[in-house]
Design a protein around this nucleic acid. Structure first.
Length: 261
DNA sequence: ATGCCTTTCCCAGAAAGA
């Protein structure tokens, strides 16, 4: 079974590349983030033509997450209890969707950016992590394979950014954000470390600006956090940086995990 | 270096991303 996660930065803008990549990589399940469409505007037809079913949770201009599966799509959950919302609990954002696919429980996550330390969005990011942890605790502890996949918007370690000195006073590397990841791992989840297809670092994101991709100025912020039942089944994991090349690419590359369940 | 690019809203330029 092949599962994958990809922040596509607009599913409509990325549709030709998404269809091409589904054909090339042939994942059984693909988690998408930043679809940037409402549920009724998701371009399901070309995806369904390839044999996938779609669970989408979107809201239009921003955010939006989905799970595409050709091995079943059961018990879909949109959002989670305790989501703090932004700017308040009256305004929930479409950042989490879950489904059970072929007996594997998977969450597609788009963690809030945080903008800058001390910003209300940063406070929201940390609260969102804490609520997510509580919401998935029981599923993670079960005997069935389980994983959180998506754009976590945190680089777990200094080696996960191209130059940590450039991130002084910036989000994605602060101790509270990394502590939020550690608290997820404390649920018994393991960071499924991908191999890089080129170079030493399995980055998953390169900014559009300044030729970052060609200068290898990337970040590993798209992650797969797996419980023991899933982690022990991993046979391979890699970042498909080919998908970041050329015109019309997302600023994120897909992260692929192969399982022998 | 207060940007660099890309996307959305929708047609002008702001907001957001990370």
């Amino acid at each position: 079974m092949r599962i994958a996660t990809w922040n596509v930065n607009s599913v409509n803008s990325r549709l030709p590349r998404l269809v091409e990549w589904l054909r090339l990589a042939s994942p059984d399940v693909l988690c998408l983030q930043e679809t940037k469409v409402a549920d009724d505007a998701f371009p399901a037809e070309p995806v369904e033509a390839l044999g996938y079913r779609v669970a989408h949770y979107g809201q239009g201009r921003w955010n939006g997450v989905a799970i595409l599966s050709r091995v079943g799509l059961d018990d879909v959950a949109r959002g989670f209890a305790g989501d703090p919302g932004f700017p308040d609990g009256e305004t929930l954002e479409a950042r989490a969707v879950a489904a059970t696919c072929g007996g594997v429980r998977l969450w597609s996550l788009y963690v809030p950016n945080g903008r800058e330390p001390g910003h209300p969005h940063y406070t929201y990011k940390l609260a969102w992590f804490a609520a997510l942890r509580d919401a998935v605790r029981a599923e993670a502890a079960g005997s069935a394979p389980f994983a959180l996949l998506g754009d976590f918007n945190v680089a777990p370690q200094d080696v996960d950014v191209w130059d940590v000195a450039k991130f002084a006073d910036a989000t994605h590397v602060t101790p509270p954000e990394r502590a939020a990841l550690a608290q997820l791992r404390d649920l018994g989840l393991a960071d499924v470390m991908p191999r890089a297809l080129k170079g030493p670092h399995p980055y998953t994101f390169w900014d559009y600006r300044g030729g970052a991709f060609h200068k290898a100025e990337g970040m590993r912020i798209d992650l797969v956090y797996a419980n023991p039942a899933l982690a022990k089944a991993v046979t391979d994991a890699y970042v498909d940086r080919e998908a970041r090349k050329g015109k019309g690419a997302s600023d994120h590359a897909p992260l692929v995990v192969d399982l022998s369940l």
